[in-house]
Design a binder for these strands. Structure first.
Lengths: 149, 149
DNA sequence: AGCTTTTACTTAACAAAGCAAGTAAACTGA
DNA sequence: TCAGTTTACTTGCTTTGTTAAGTAAAAGCT
């Protein structure tokens, strides 16, 4: 119905901009983790478990931005590496509760200074106010009602 | 050095916010494409070729946010599907030039109204000014100097 | 010209993403 | 109580991401 598409003139693509920004932010983190046997996804899982405490896999997947099939496999590997535990609660044996282990917490501690410095750098170069504003917008974007086809 | 980490109190994570925002934006597009045999990546390749015209694979990969090995496979599949052509220019036979075919353009046309309406919806719900501002910030974030470890 | 380096991809190998289908436990309603 | 549904995962399969190694053409150096 619009006789002029929004993308036509500016050529700026939101999906591409999000991809590139993500790559910029996660690149240094990937580098940081490269030596320690955990990847970005496992790092996210550890961080969520540390902050939220023991969690059901569905909730954990949602908070770590992983699909359940991915988390199933990642969690198994992390349990084998001793970074997390998985237990089935007696009151509902469909569920699996994941929890971080001392080894997992140690791994986070190992990298916490470096991780903090990466984000401090972004905060400094990008500007704290601007960063807060960006986070606000990203959250708002995410909260937008989903279009139905 | 900071005695209070920026992430501590707010708990807002830029990587996660970027992931979630991307999922919000791309979800509807993935749904739209689901029926037509092309995925998100192939869609990006088609869009770039349509906008920029015939392109070398390296440049195309960079603009479509793909690594070259991924693009190699995707381009082969798309050529087999008749969506693009690949030619080797005589003046530099290392290169491969990809170009969109009429069938590829037709596929874009098939979805252009729906795609436009998805972005129009975002523009309306999110606000045009805010969206422009978000794009500015994402570009600035991406342009930040990369931290060296 | 002949040798090395650089450029532009391709191939290979393996982990991870994404979708669909499967399983098993809990719930729900006759 | 028992079939049907929902919930919470798990498994299987294909494609993609990622790193490393390989190939072939062009460019640069002597």
């Amino acid at each position: 119905m619009a006789n002029d598409l929004p993308l036509r003139r500016t050529k700026r693509s939101l999906p591409i901009a999000l991809l590139r920004a993500r790559e910029s932010v996660m690149g240094p983190i990937r580098d940081m983790l490269a030596s320690s046997g955990v990847n970005e996804q496992k790092w996210r899982v550890l961080r969520v478990l540390q902050e939220r405490g023991p969690s059901e896999l569905t909730q954990l997947a949602s908070e770590a931005c992983l699909l359940l099939p991915s988390l199933t496999r990642i969690a198994r590997a992390m349990e084998e590496d001793g970074l997390i535990t998985r237990t089935t609660p007696d009151d509902d044996r469909r569920k699996t509760i994941a929890a971080i282990t001392p080894a997992g917490e140690a791994l986070i501690r190992t990298h916490s200074a470096q991780s903090a410095s990466i984000f401090a750098r972004i905060e400094r170069d990008f500007g704290l106010e601007r960063l807060e504003s960006l986070l606000d917008m990203l959250e708002a974007l995410q909260a937008l009602p989903r279009a139905k086809d």
